[in-house]
Simulated scan of single mutants.
Amino acid sequence: MRVPSWTTYTPILAAVMLVLTWGRYPPAVVLVLVAVLLMGAVVSAVHHAEVVAHKVGEPFGSLLLAVAVTIIEVGLIVTLMVTSKGDTSGLARDTVFAAVMITVNGIMGLSLLVSARRHRLAVFNPEGTASALTTVVILATICLVLPAFTTSESGPEYSGTQLAFVAVASLVLYGMFVVTQTGQYRDFFLPVGRDGVTLDQDGDGHADPPTRRATLTSLGLLVVSLVSVVGLAKVESPSIEKAVDAVGFPNAVVGVVIALLVLAPESIAAVRAAARERVQVSLNLALGSAMASIGLTIPAIAIASIWLDGPLALGLDSVQIVLLFMTVIVSVLTVLPGRSKPLQGGVHLVVLAAFVFLTIAP
Rank of each mutant, 00 (worst) to 15 (best):
V279R: 01
R278K: 14
V100Q: 06
E241M: 15
T129W: 02
L296M: 13
A292Q: 03
A264Q: 13
P126H: 04
Q344E: 13
H348F: 09
S5D: 09
G155A: 07
K242Y: 12
I258F: 15
L173H: 11
D87E: 12
V330S: 14
S282C: 02
R118W: 00
G61V: 05
A252K: 06
V46S: 10
F188Y: 08
H206Y: 15
R186K: 15
E58F: 01
Q162S: 09
V230K: 07
S237I: 13
S237P: 08
D317V: 08
A243Y: 12
V256C: 07
V32C: 09
W22M: 14
I240D: 14
T150R: 05
T103N: 13
V279W: 02
P250R: 08
G175T: 01
G196C: 00
A273K: 09
L260K: 05
V262C: 08
L308C: 14
I77P: 02
L31Y: 13
V30M: 14
R24Y: 11
V356L: 15
H48M: 10
L91E: 10
L38M: 09
Q320K: 14
G128A: 06
N125F: 01
P337Y: 00
T103C: 10
F249I: 07
S5L: 03
A116Q: 02
D208N: 05
M17N: 05
T70S: 13
W22I: 14
L133P: 05
H48T: 08
L13Y: 05
P250A: 11
T103A: 07
F357N: 00
T211F: 11
D195V: 01
E241I: 15
F149D: 08
I107Q: 02
V82W: 04
S111T: 10
R118I: 02
G175Q: 01
I301N: 03
R194P: 02
A92S: 06
L173F: 13
A167D: 06
F124W: 06
E73Y: 00
T135M: 13
L80M: 09
G345T: 05
P299N: 09
M108N: 04
T161L: 13
I138T: 11
H48C: 09
A68Y: 05
R93A: 00
L358Y: 06
N105M: 07
S159K: 03
G175N: 01
V247G: 12
S289P: 04
V29A: 15
I321L: 15
R2N: 00
L80D: 05
I102E: 07
F60Y: 12
R24F: 11
I72M: 14
V42W: 09
R276H: 11
Y158L: 12
L20A: 15
P11A: 05
D200N: 00
V19W: 12
